[in-house]
């Protein structure tokens, strides 16, 4: 949790004033304050006066110290609403990125375009499980790389095209690239073993037949029957949902791209 908080606030340009094993104290940036501290009136007031507001300083505790909390102090854990708010904010702020690999080169260097997407795949029935796929499509060759985030974790990036670097135009548009990745995931999903869905469907049918027996002699309760039946359907109906958590365009050097293919041929 502490690692998350530290990385989160650093990434959001908030100044960490104090930190130990138990707690972290942060001077929020104005943007983060507006997004998470829930004080729209304050900011509205400051905006109307055309003044600069003072963002709050907040302490987050990851362990129970036994002491009662004072103002601007709070506990945070993976189960707390605050954590989910921060994670949601992080997701929203990084929905789309565009970055260029920065090589310290004095010769002209060519960068190749990649579409990089984190897909969230949810299996839902009477329970739910999820996974995240980190996939990237080379927008020239159409090759797809898996577990991409790990592969490029140590690449230095720049916001704009660095000097001496130039960018190749994609053959595949990012939108059709996205479609290609979706199609691949769908194919894979269709080949998976869906025992869980079958089980859920069986349970659902059993419950519905019990329900039918309860209402069979009772035709004036058809509303009630429909309502209960719909509830059972919602409780058990198996479905897979596919969505994008975050993604973007990355421009990587040819050497880097080569290293992926090399790694794959070793596999």
């Amino acid at each position: 949790m502490m690692t998350f908080l530290k990385q989160f606030f650093t990434a959001c340009n908030c100044h960490i004033t104090h930190q130990n094993d138990e707690s972290i104290t942060v001077e929020l940036s104005e943007q983060v304050d507006r997004a998470i501290m829930n004080r729209p009136f304050y900011w509205h007031y400051k905006d109307q006066l055309n003044e600069k507001g003072t963002p709050m300083t907040v302490s987050f505790y990851v362990k129970d110290t036994g002491q009662p909390l004072r103002a601007h102090e709070e506990y945070i854990s993976f189960g707390s609403p605050r954590f989910h708010q921060l994670l949601h904010y992080a997701g929203q702020q990084s929905l789309f990125i565009r970055l260029y690999e920065e090589c310290s080169s004095v010769k002209p260097l060519q960068l190749e375009p990649w579409l990089f997407v984190h897909f969230l795949i949810s299996y839902e029935a009477n329970g739910k499980k999820e996974r995240i796929e980190s996939l990237a499509l080379h927008l020239i060759s159409g090759k797809i790389q898996r577990d991409f985030l790990t592969k490029i974790s140590d690449v230095p990036f720049a916001q704009t095209i660095p000097s001496f670097h130039y960018v190749l135009s994609p053959f595949i548009t990012p939108i059709s690239g996205l479609k290609r990745i979706q199609k691949m995931i769908m194919n894979e999903l269709n080949q998976e073993n869906h025992e869980w869905a079958k089980e859920a469907k069986n349970k659902q049918e059993k419950e519905i037949s019990l329900l039918r027996s309860f209402y069979k002699n009772n035709s004036d309760n058809s509303d009630e029957y429909t309502r209960e039946k719909e509830a059972i359907i919602r409780r058990f109906e198996p479905v897979i949902r596919l969505s994008v958590w975050n993604g973007g365009l990355l421009y990587l050097s040819a050497g880097r791209c080569q290293s992926f293919t090399d790694a794959q041929s070793v596999l």
């Binding site: 998350f4 990434a11 959001c12 994670l87 990084s94 984190h118 999820e130 985030l149 869980w196 958590w245």
Partner: peptide, 29 residues
């Protein structure tokens, strides 16, 4: 997004969001 010229890309936040999400989703029914 593709057509808007300046995009502020926060790479650390992008990585953090993806890794943390992966950590907290239910991996099993």
């Amino acid at each position: 997004w593709l057509h808007s010229a300046p995009i502020v890309s926060n790479w650390p936040l992008f990585t953090l969001a993806a890794k943390t999400k992966k950590l907290v989703i239910p991996t099993d029914f």
